[in-house]
Design a binder for these strands. Structure first.
Length: 676
RNA sequence: UGCCCGAUGGUGUAACUGGCAACACGUCUGGUUUUGGUCCAGAAGAGUCUAGGUUCGAGCCCUAGUCGGGCAACCA
């Protein structure tokens, strides 16, 4: 299956256009520009996949450029983590670059700007400058230093660079337009003084360029053709272009900035600041806590690079903001792991089961398929004996016939072993079941080929032989937040939505001995439970498994009262705009003519109900609705009926509208008009 | 009160740039199955924010509105 007619996202379309307009394919070059002040998250993955994907698509180089212009926030630890994550995702950058590599060039260009009267040194307080900046609706006023002489500016800037001033004393500003409707054009800062060791340049510099000054010029130095960033930088584009204008040499390629929407994931937050807060407050164990939406967290949780790339691909690139449901991410990892994970058995919530007719002391090695999806995956052995653990929830003394598991008197198969039948239970003083006694059909061993082994029974259970069981710790994770968009509430802090039960630790789970050989990064499917991977906390003799994601579970959905209380909880108090009743009516009415029977009745009732809250003034303009939009006219007619019934006086416009309705070709409309 | 973006099933995206609104996830049926998984078959669900206009024809173009997001850090 090749691409039928693959559709391009809007960035690719822009590139195709540029190519069509004569840009050489060889001049395509991209970059991924993280600031090393935190770990990469699934949102960055979108940008990484986009940029590196473009590189692969056009066979063009992609630079990894660290945007390290603020030594107060940036650290080498983050540089290393970011590189590791990108490589893990399976991408290779052409050149590892740093904005700090260009500090000298940036400085030289800044001097040139000053000489050209395009920049000046300002010694006011940041408050004063903010004041002068004005507001989006009122123009700013010029700084008293705006027209300082070039010589004075040069001298001050030189002194700034030489460390003759304390931090914050002076800044270098571009001289653009204090009245621009774009706030960023009101003489933005180019340089500020920061007396901090830089992770790469050490104490060589004490003035550092601002993002806007550094970023576009870095793109230019690297001759990046398409500088792709997120939407909040849209208004920076004007500045980006202005800065380029100052230094641009037409013999060289001129980079262009284009913006796409950042990706949000439901039930989590996606800003480095907020993620850092989760880490620092101890809400999670670190940047790589398996509940974090970071690349490192997802990796530790058991996500594969393939699944994350697939997720990015499926999610697409656009300019509208959105919240992607985690279920899409979960689909991607299940899809990948289903094909690759080794099937094993483990019991998380055990109860003892004794096979009374199985010989005491007997042990057998049974054969277990490693992966039914992969014929070449091979098999491994599973030890079996008289006493096994099964999952507590797989047994009920009595149950309806929808319960495909073990009950007294019913048969089920123990996966890869025998068909057993529930006979009796042993309970403790409190009535808890401590043992389940069964008999096995000893001719029914899986794979033996006997007639009995081929019998069909309703259910199959996973199990672990008690004698051979290996104890393991299992960590199960739930969403970190109870709200779909925890940081979308103006009135509430996102921390208020932290899910107190997002981590469940099971200290004594039992797994089959095969798992003793498990290595970090191995992926397993605990049959009927979900996908698991070994956690890095594992030590010799103390296995720890992270649950990556559960299997799809159509049985859980049928169970009556779902404990899963937080499915779609407070999501409705979102600050979404309310539709007015008249808008609602229009919306319903629009599809009115497509309805029939009960649905039609319901729609009519909805409209009538909403009409109670509608003013005549809102309704009258809709009398002019085009004749072909019958649905809307019907809705208006129904609403009009309600208003008339409530005492509205008839006027010429109303009469004319009813008249027009009566002579319409649509029966429904005629009928409504006749009512009036 | 200014400027800039955006709006297509529940969710995320498509629609050859004006020609019967498609795909994936999710949901629901049924079948296969030694995983209530996978797989297979099928279904429901949007007339594309609203109104007007251009056109033989509009989700795509134009106008006006509505709603949502961004913009006033010595952050990036």
């Amino acid at each position: 299956m090749t691409e039928a007619s693959e559709s391009l996202n809007f960035i690719e379309q822009i590139i195709e256009e540029d190519l069509a307009n004569g840009m050489s394919k060889d001049s395509l070059r991209f970059r991924f520009p993280p600031e090393p002040n935190g770990y990469l998250h699934i949102g960055h993955a979108a940008s990484i996949c986009l940029n590196f994907g473009l590189g692969e698509r056009y066979n063009a180089p992609v630079n990894l450029r660290f945007d390290d212009t603020n030594p107060a926030k940036e650290e080498q630890e983050y540089v290393d983590a970011i590189k590791n994550d990108i490589e893990w995702l399976g991408f290779q950058w052409a050149t590892e670059c740093y904005s700090s590599d260009y500090f000298q060039q940036l400085y030289d260009w800044a001097v040139e700007l000053i000489k050209n009267g395009k920049a000046y040194v300002d010694g006011q307080s940041s408050e004063a400058m903010a004041e002068q900046k004005g507001t989006p609706t009122t123009p700013g006023v010029a700084s008293p230093h705006r027209n300082q002489s070039v010589e004075e500016n040069l001298e001050l800037f030189e002194k700034m660079k030489n460390g003759e001033f304390e931090a914050g004393r002076y800044v270098l500003r571009a001289k653009i337009d204090m009245a621009s409707p774009n706030m960023l054009m009101r003489d933005p800062l180019l340089y500020r003084i920061i007396n901090k060791e830089h992770h790469r340049t050490g104490s060589e510099w004490c003035i550092y360029p601002m993002y806007d000054w550094a970023h576009g010029e870095s793109d230019y130095v690297e001759q990046v053709s398409h500088s792709i960033c997120t939407l909040e930088f849209k208004s920076h584009r004007e500045l980006y272009d202005w800065f380029l204008d100052q230094i641009y040499d037409s013999a060289k390629l001129r980079p262009k900035q284009r913006e796409f929407a950042r990706r949000n994931l439901s039930y989590t937050v996606m800003s480095k600041r907020k993620l850092l807060q989760l880490v620092q407050s101890g809400t999670v164990s670190g940047w790589d806590d398996p509940r974090m939406p970071t690349i490192s967290g997802l990796r530790r949780r058991g996500y594969t690079p393939e699944s994350i790339r697939k997720f990015s691909e499926v999610s697409g690139i656009t300019k509208r903001d959105s919240v992607t449901d985690v279920s899409l991410l979960e689909f991607c990892i299940r899809e990948d792991l289903n094909k690759t994970a080794t099937r094993v058995m483990g019991v998380v919530d055990p109860v003892k089961l004794i096979i009374t007719n199985y010989p005491e002391g007997k042990e057998e090695m049974l054969i277990a398929e490693n992966n039914p999806e992969d014929a070449n995956a091979g098999t491994h052995e599973v030890p079996f004996s008289k006493e096994v653990y099964i999952e507590k929830e797989d047994f009920k003394e009595e149950a309806g016939n929808k319960f495909f598991r073990l009950t007294l008197g019913n048969e089920v198969r123990l996966k890869n072993a025998y068909i057993i039948k529930g006979e009796s239970v042993v309970k403790d003083a409190d009535g808890n079941i401590t043992e389940i006694h069964c008999t096995a059909d000893l001719d029914s061993r899986s794979g033996s080929g006997t007639e009995a082994s081929l019998r069909k029974v309703k259910g199959t259970l996973h199990w672990v032989s008690i004698k051979h069981a290996v104890t393991a710790e299992v960590r199960e994770y739930d969403r970190l937040f109870l709200d779909e968009a925890p940081d979308a509430h103006e009135d509430k802090d996102f921390m208020e939505f932290v899910n107190p039960d997002s981590l469940k630790i099971i200290k004594e789970a039992y797994v089959e001995p095969f798992l003793k050989q498990a290595k970090l990064n191995d992926k397993f499917q605990f049959q009927r439970l979900g996908y698991f991977t070994l956690d890095k906390d594992t030590t010799e003799g103390n296995l720890i498994f992270n649950k990556t994601v559960g299997l799809r579970d159509s049985w859980a959905k049928q169970k009556p009262a779902q404990p899963q209380a937080q499915n779609k909880p407070a999501a409705n108090n979102q600050p979404q705009g309310q539709r007015s009743p008249i808008n609602e009516i229009q919306k319903i009415a629009k599809k009115y003519t497509n309805l029939s029977g009960a649905k039609l009745e319901a729609a009519r009732a909805d409209i009538a109900k909403l009409a109670e809250k509608v003013e005549y003034d809102e309704l009258e303009p809709l009398f002019n609705t085009a004749a072909k939009k019958v649905g809307t006219r019907i809705g208006v007619m129904i609403s009009l009926g309600v208003l008339l019934k409530n005492g509205l006086e008839r006027n010429d416009k109303i009469e004319a509208f009813i008249e027009a309705g009566l002579s319409d070709g649509n029966e429904l409309l005629v009928a409504e008009a006749q009512e009036l």
